[in-house]
Amino acid sequence: MKHIFFLLIFTITQFAISQERKTGIIKDADTKEPLEFVSVYIDNGPDSNYTGSISNGEGEFSIMDNGSKVTFSYLGYEEKEVELQDGFNEIFLKPKDFVLDEVVISDVSAEDYLKSIIKAADNKIDKNTLFKSYCREIVKVNDEYTKFSDGLVNYYVKKGNGKSVITLPQHRAFKSDKISEEDFASIDNINSAFTLDEYVKNAYNYKFIKKLLKDKNYDFVRKIKKEEGGLEYEYIEVSPKSDVEELLFKGYVVIDPKTGDVLELKFYTSSDHLKYSKLQNVMLIMKVKVNSLLIWTKFRVIEDKYVLSYNQKSVGMYLKFGKYVDDNFNFSSDLFVYAFENDVEIPDDGYDNRTIYEAGTSFTENFWENYNAFPLNNEEEAFIESVSK
């Protein structure tokens, strides 16, 4: 019995040793500037439902490394496979040399081509799927953190309609104590501009792209890039018409030409059109002016499975309503899918509140570190530390 006990202790110890946390920063090999939201992947075999990790907005990453080689992948850069070292790792990715970057000449317009891609992509989720994710929501008022919440969020996505049932196994929420009670009487209920149950749903239904496709104020250009090795991808550039005096957006959609899969999309406010943003009445007593918008989504194909890996949304806006609110707000949400399962049973009930913040704090482990979530930046850590005290 004693031998079995010591064998068990040895096995657990060896497993703990084999799963070491490795950290580092990813940079452009030429400019030495950090690269944000780079995919970090460990190959755990053909049957693995593990999606890897991702760097944060400052290029920093943290991953549980079992000693395998780790692959770093970022659009427009050469993939790099390395064995991470103990201590802090610096990873340099080399920009790709493209021998071809030209407009595609076709009888099908860029708009119609993008419509067909989006229509086909609507059917990519063909089974009941569970997306295991780390999510965070941040609220800033006048550039100061006022609320931070994050959690492990399970999205059970239903086949066909894409609706989801959500559970929150672990979560935490923090609120600034710098804002007066008088201010909080008006703004304490403003937890996010986004809704938790739409993070995954909106990523797959391409709602924002469909809206732009219906707008006559945008130009669409279909292009193809080819590398020296012959690999290629297509992308659709979306740009606002210069003579339109409205708040408009610009961005791109990256497409795998062989499969028609959308690999990445990114849209943001056009700096040339931001001056046309106007104060608008939303409700009888509320006025809103949009200052900025960002939508950034990444997908991966893992063993023929089309999987959302990262989704970011942020919006900056000026809000005025009631007696006290006359401020600039910034709302952001980040979702990173660290694992997925197909053919799952959908729970009957789930979490129904709009935000993670409303769930409060309940956790049994440092989940923000243990699931290969992108590290918090220095400002976020400082805010959490200050309000935790």
Rank of each mutant, 00 (worst) to 15 (best):
M1E: 11
F5H: 08
F5P: 08
F6Q: 11
T11Y: 09
I12K: 04
I12P: 06
T13Q: 06
Q19R: 12
E20H: 14
G24F: 02
I25K: 11
I26S: 00
P34Y: 03
L35H: 10
L35T: 05
I42R: 08
I42H: 07
D43Q: 14
D43G: 14
N44D: 15
P46A: 03
T51I: 09
S53R: 06
I54R: 08
S55F: 04
G57F: 05
E58R: 05
F61D: 04
M64F: 15
M64Q: 14
N66D: 13
G67K: 12
V70H: 01
Y74R: 13
E78K: 02
E79G: 09
L84S: 06
D86E: 14
G87R: 14
S109Q: 10
D112M: 15
L114W: 13
K115V: 11
K119S: 15
D122F: 14
N123I: 00
I125V: 13
I125H: 09
I125M: 11
K132D: 08
K132C: 04
K140R: 07
D143W: 01
E144H: 04
K147V: 02
S149C: 04
G151A: 10
G151Y: 06
L152M: 14
N154Y: 06
G160C: 01
N161Q: 14
I166L: 07
P169Q: 00
F174D: 01
S176Q: 08
D183R: 05
F184R: 03
S186H: 13
F194C: 10
T195K: 09
N205C: 09
K210P: 00
L212H: 05
D215G: 12
K216N: 10
F220V: 13
V221P: 12
K223N: 15
K226I: 09
K226T: 12
G229F: 01
L231T: 12
Y233G: 04
Y233I: 05
E234C: 09
E237T: 11
V238S: 15
K241C: 04
L247S: 08
L248N: 13
I255H: 02
L263W: 00
L263I: 07
E264R: 13
T269W: 03
S270T: 03
Y276G: 07
I285H: 00
K287I: 02
V288R: 12
S292H: 06
S292K: 05
I295G: 07
T297L: 10
R300W: 01
E303W: 07
S309Y: 04
Y310R: 11
S314Y: 00
S314W: 04
V315F: 00
V315T: 07
M317S: 14
F321T: 08
G322R: 03
K323M: 05
Y324F: 09
D326L: 00
F331S: 12
S332G: 04
L335E: 05
N342L: 04
D348H: 13
D352K: 15
N353T: 15
G360T: 06
S362C: 10
S362L: 11
W368D: 00
W368F: 01
W368N: 01
P375T: 03
E381M: 12
E385A: 15
S386T: 11
V387G: 07
